[in-house]
Write a protein that binds this DNA or RNA. Structure first.
Length: 792
DNA sequence: AACAACGGGCTTTTT
DNA sequence: GCCCGTTGTT
């Protein structure tokens, strides 16, 4: 929640800066270089000229990037001249944090660091008038864009089945990512014939209308941020030159995920000094569906023929088994850069492959294993992750984890800022900031209910368009107003007066004051407050609003230079934030559930990779082409390489798809893993408690692995050793007690064998009376009791 | 204008 | 199975 508060707002002031004279180089400042291996060190110290770093999974890529920047600063490069582009806000803030530790706060703060979208949205704001956009332009999120497209399709009297917002949006988005403007789109024979073939001849018209409407609304969508940055740098040479000189050193993280629009921005900015460093791993390119172009990596050598290439191939994250298994998968791909990832880490245990009957059973199995492993090996919840292909799969795991009282956190899904109540209040902020923001206006004109219904709205929209006015201008236009009944007129005027009064104060009042005023005067706060007793969801909504407002309060008070932070400033980054960027304290020690996509860049001791079934993973949508299948395979590679110690792969024989039971085949990816690194487990059905099948580490592998570059693994016996050293009975394994019943025979570590006599209480207060022949009857709080179920 | 009931489509991934 | 939007009802 408060990451946007902490996010440093780099000042990208217009106007030319004086180029600083480089201070002398001081030797001995760079002790941290000793922490690097040879190839990492080379990648850090050779910071002049174009270079490409191919960084295998877990090879210390972030370390190289941060040290490289720190080293540059140590060598006298002005941090003000460094631009570092990352893929997520989280990556940017992490890197900034690490750099701060090395070079100190003030230097670190001067480095411009952020995602393409956030960095260039700020540059666009500074130069907005060149493009005819207001400085406070709105950023439309996907929802806004689709809603606008829907309106346009309706206004053009087109078939909304044929021109589905998601399809149209995707098409426009692809075009913009390729820097194809709406005019170029309309004039491109190939594109047009494609649209005709798909029976969507009006696509070009929709695209053009969409662009016009966004412009009139003073709004840019996600893709526009990159598109218009290109326009800005193309049409205004002085602007281009300014940023070329400002950003003399450019670093791009996750280069394999950049699209053409991003590629060209970087190329242009780097054209003068060519101090460009791109870091990436072609094997981890998983975003081609949104325009990422793996060719950007391959083209790098053409653009900068004398570039330096650094390969980071030593993996520090995972066991040999994981690394080699991952290698064995990825070699099935045709398109890739030659490299060999290796590790000096322990051999580790084989990848377990388990089958369950249903998706629910898969959930129970994984939850039970986590429960058992955590108890048995003294692990933390945070050591576990469940990774899946699609968000909808989270459900079964969620339920199973809840049954066992295991704390978990689901990442992805609906972000905080996409919740209805948050979007509603933000829409007020947006409209008050930018009166032209049509999507915001549509959202709130009758929310809370103020008697301005659909017919009235449509009337105003049509009449405003006829007069060439924006929706909001139409609402205040005397001629248009007079066409409506006096009751309607007064309601409209009351609304517009309120918004205008917000608008008049918005640049003057501190963000928090303004936000409170809007929340109160709009009636929104009251509306949500009144609904609070309806149910827990309503309470949560109210709390979300409270959370947002307290976030704004913190933002307002951050006040570094004693300046007043206003609401429009608050809005700048909000559209670009997802709560994947934020980590609340209470979420720190929980089992993580997320899609493989969102797991990129993360690591976990123990990974459960679930739903490995044909048509699910690889996704059915990917089976049309080799390229798509290879992307799925890279996704599998990413998933596997998240694991430090163990990876358990599961699949279900059948699962519910769209409400009906479908049978499924195991994924082809399972068999693609070199067999010497896997073991298939058989489980008993009905929830998969692993008591009897045992999860004691397997004995050493036979043959095959000897060719690995390191001595035999120490940790083959580690599980047993760990147990011994903890002084506990190696045979003792605490069981999940959620379905303990009267009559069960159990084993207690000190009391020995006993029988359950009675169970009382619920939840945390659940107790069992157990009779131990040696000790007599004991009442144990199940929350703490460590019992092994011997017999049911 | 407000609410309930119904039906359709959806599910790949997200800055 | 669920969410969303549309339709029908008062």
């Amino acid at each position: 929640m408060d990451s946007f508060i902490c996010l440093d707002r780099n000042k990208l002031t217009p106007g030319y800066s004086n180029f600083p004279i480089l201070p002398l180089i001081f030797a001995g400042m760079s002790a941290y270089l000793d922490e690097l291996n040879e190839s990492q060190r080379l990648a850090v110290i050779n910071y002049e000229g174009p270079s490409m770093v191919i960084a295998g999974a877990g090879s210390g890529k972030t370390r190289v990037l941060t040290y490289r920047i720190a080293y540059m600063i140590d060598q006298g490069i002005d941090p003000f001249n460094i631009l570092a582009l990352t893929f997520t806000n989280k990556a940017a803030s992490e890197m900034k944090e690490r750099i701060t530790k090395i070079v100190g706060d003030s230097d670190a703060r001067s480095v411009v660091m952020g995602t393409f979208h956030s960095v260039f949205s700020r540059i666009l704001r500074i130069n907005s008038e060149r493009l005819g956009f207001p400085q406070n332009f709105t950023i439309y999120d996907t929802q806004d864009s689709k809603s606008l497209i829907k309106d346009i399709v309706k206004e053009l009297n087109l078939d909304d089945k044929l021109y589905k917002p998601s399809v149209v949006y995707g098409r426009i988005s692809t075009a913009k990512n390729q820097l194809v403007s709406s005019d170029e789109y309309a004039n491109n024979a190939e594109i047009i014939s494609e649209d005709y073939a798909n029976k969507r001849p009006m696509m070009a018209t929709i695209y053009k209308t969409y662009v016009t409407r966004c412009f009139k609304a003073g709004a840019m969508d996600f893709d526009d941020l990159l598109f218009y940055t290109n326009v800005l740098l193309r049409d205004f040479p002085d602007v281009l030159q300014h940023y070329q000189y400002k950003f003399r050193y450019i670093l791009v993280d996750e280069y394999q995920d950049t699209n053409f629009a991003q590629y060209l921005i970087v190329k242009k900015l780097a054209a003068v000094f060519e101090n460009i460093c791109v870091v990436g791993d072609d094997a981890q390119s998983i975003y081609s569906f949104r325009g990422a172009n793996i060719q950007n990596i391959l083209n790098f050598r053409k653009d900068y023929p004398d570039f330096q290439l650094f390969k980071l191939e030593q993996n520090y994250r995972s066991t040999q088994v994981i690394v080699e298994a991952a290698n064995s998968i990825i070699k099935n791909n045709r398109d890739q850069i030659e490299k060999k990832v290796w590790t000096e880490n322990d051999l580790g245990t084989k990848i377990k492959i388990v089958r369950t009957l249903t998706d629910n059973e898969e959930g129970n199995l994984v939850a039970n294993r986590i429960f058992d492993m955590k108890r048995g090996e003294g692990l933390e919840y945070r050591d576990f992750a469940i990774l899946y292909r699609t968000n909808r799969q989270s459900r079964a795991f969620e339920e199973a984890l809840r049954k066992l009282n295991l704390p978990y956190k689901i990442y992805g899904g609906l972000s905080f800022y996409q919740r209805k109540e948050i979007k509603d209040i933000l829409a007020y902020f947006r409209l008050a900031t930018n009166l032209k923001d049509e999507e915001a206006l549509k959202r709130i004109i009758n929310y809370p209910k103020r008697g301005i219904g659909q017919t009235t709205q449509e009337g105003f929209i049509i009449k405003s368009a006829e007069k060439g006015l924006t929706f909001f201008e139409g609402l205040t236009d005397p001629d248009i107003l007079n066409a409506f009944a006096s009751g309607v007129r007064s309601k409209i005027t009351e609304f517009t007066t309120m918004i205008q009064s917000f608008h008049a104060q918005i640049d003057k009042l501190p963000a928090y004051d303004m936000a409170m005023e809007i929340a109160k005067s709009s009636g929104l706060l009251k509306e949500l407050y009144n609904e609070k007793d309806k149910g827990p969801e309503e309470v949560e909504r109210y709390q979300n609003i409270e959370e947002l407002i307290s976030g704004i309060k913190a933002f307002t008070q951050q006040n570094q230079e004693n300046e007043t932070k206003t609401l429009p400033e608050f809005l700048i980054d909000v559209a670009l934030l997802t709560d994947a960027d934020e980590q609340k304290d209470e979420d720190r020690n929980k089992v993580s559930l997320m899609t493989i996509h969102s797991s990129k860049g993360l690591e976990f001791k123990h990974v459960f990779l679930v739903g490995l079934e044909e048509n699910l993973f690889p996704s059915q949508m990917s089976l049309h082409s080799r390229a798509e299948l290879e992307e799925e395979r890279r996704l599998f590679y990413v998933a596997l390489t998240r694991a430090e110690k163990t990876c358990t792969i599961s699949y279900a024989n059948s699962r519910f798809v769209f409400g009906s039971l479908q049978t499924s085949e195991p994924s082809r990816f399972i068999t693609e893993i070199d067999r010497q690194y896997t073991e298939h487990e058989t489980t008993q059905h009905g929830g998969g408690r692993s008591l009897k099948s045992g999860r004691i580490a397997e004995p050493a592998f036979s043959g095959g692995l000897n060719r690995l570059s390191t001595p035999p693994a120490k940790n083959l016996r580690s599980l047993d050793e760990l147990k011994q050293s903890n002084g506990t009975n190696p045979d003792f394994q605490a069981s999940s007690l959620s379905d303990l019943k009267v009559g069960y025979n159990v084993l207690h570590e000190t009391f020995g064998r006993g029988k359950v006599i009675q169970i009382t209480g619920n939840g945390d207060d659940k107790r069992a009376v157990i009779f131990f022949p040696k000790e007599g009857s004991k009442t144990l709080l199940l929350r703490f009791a460590k019992l092994q179920i011997v017999e049911e």
